[in-house]
Design a protein around this nucleic acid. Structure first.
Length: 352
DNA sequence: AAGACGGGGAC
DNA sequence: GTCCCAGTCTT
């Protein structure tokens, strides 16, 4: 593995050039359930804005969420920010040196804690990310879906047995790179695999059948109406979502259940008189666990009461304000389209 | 043990 | 469309 890594491993990823615990930590959190190519631009912007754990701890959560906007799993950003405060407040600004202390931080489980300490301090800890699960399930022909506790337990045992006493950082990067570039989900390249000779499935079996698939489930379909409440000065009303749950803590559009009257919602919830409801084309946003059918409605504010908003969960935002706010990806796209229509001469919606 | 939690890349 | 990804947290 180490010989293969020296020749074929990835050594030039942004967090590898200067693998401090902080830089590795941020990368590992971003890489949870997210592919390297997606992470890289986010990582660059994040490290430029929050170069140290102190800078991250001092920042507003809003600033952190805006740099996370579009990555998904926003609890990762909230946990990262909270953990930075704990590191500054309880660890004198130094990332914890033991596995248990690292795992005590929010957002850091066993695999991430092991990866950070292995990659940044060469400590001996096994990891078990998606790449390792695939490599080990194939190498040892472990049947079953890794989401089952018994299967995960066997994989952890193999991971620990393979982890060397020396060169842990390089070995850890090697097994992840092997999974990412050779032992790929479909059509693995067993002909160039450095461990194919001892692999239980590579040359003689069917590696694609490992690991076992997640049991299939029908995903429910939910629907909502999103209100684009716009004022004559070209700003739209944003509402902050609750800290937990879907899109937790992000700025989104007010929503209106199918049985509610959008005019009434504007009056009751925001004290705003509106007119001229228009429907924009609906679209479907798909999550891991359900589909969300979104029907956007535009409402023009008719009275001049835009100065009554003193609520911290409400915000009038112009187009230029959006980039500094954490918005769910579909809401960001929707508002970008809305403002783009606004500029287009064929629309008379705002000019009446 | 099972479900919640986003978004995008690969196919 | 489906599957999955450098998982963790809550229930």
């Amino acid at each position: 593995m180490l010989r293969w890594f020296a020749e074929h491993g990835r050594r030039d990823l942004p967090w590898q050039t200067d693998p401090t615990p902080y830089r590795v930590w941020v990368s590992e959190i971003m890489l949870q359930q997210t592919q390297v190519a997606t992470v890289i631009p986010y990582y660059s912007r994040f490290m430029e804005r929050f170069p140290t754990v102190t800078a991250l701890a001092k920042a507003d959560l809003d600033a952190v969420l805006s740099h996370w906007s579009g990555l998904g799993y926003y609890s990762r950003a909230r946990n990262l920010h909270e953990a930075a405060g704990l590191i500054v407040g309880e660890h004198n600004g130094a990332f914890p040196d033991t596995l248990d202390q690292a795992m005590a931080l929010p957002g850091i489980g066993r695999s991430t804690a092991g990866a950070i300490l292995a990659l940044s301090k060469d400590q001996r800890h096994p990891i078990l990310d998606g790449n390792c699960k695939r490599v080990l399930a194939r190498y040892h022909a472990v049947p079953g879906w890794p989401g089952e506790s018994g299967v995960a337990k066997r994989l952890w045992s193999h991971a620990d047995a393979h982890t060397p006493d020396a060169n842990v950082a390089r070995y850890t990067q090697a097994i992840m790179d092997l999974g990412a570039t050779v032992c790929t989900r479909t059509r693995p390249h067993c002909d160039v695999c450095p461990v194919a000779d001892h692999c239980a499935t590579g040359l003689t079996g069917t590696p694609e059948q490992f690991p076992g698939r997640r049991p299939k489930k029908i995903q429910p379909v939910k629907e909502t109406r999103m209100l684009i409440v716009y004022s004559p000065d070209g700003s739209v009303l944003l509402e902050r979502r609750p800290p937990a749950g879907i899109w937790g803590g992000l700025w989104s559009l007010p929503e209106c259940a199918t049985h509610e009257d959008p005019y009434e919602v504007c009056v009751q919830c925001f004290g705003l008189e509106t007119a001229s409801v228009d429907a924009l084309p609906g679209f479907r946003h798909t999550f891991t666990h359900y589909h969300l059918d979104i029907s956007p409605l535009t409402l023009a504010v008719t009275d001049d009461s835009t100065d009554i908003m003193e609520r911290p969960d409400l915000l009038w935002a112009r187009e230029a304000d959006l980039e500094d706010r954490g918005l769910p990806a579909p809401v960001r796209r929707l508002l970008e389209d809305f403002f783009r229509m606004d500029e287009s001469p064929c629309q008379e919606r705002l000019t009446a």
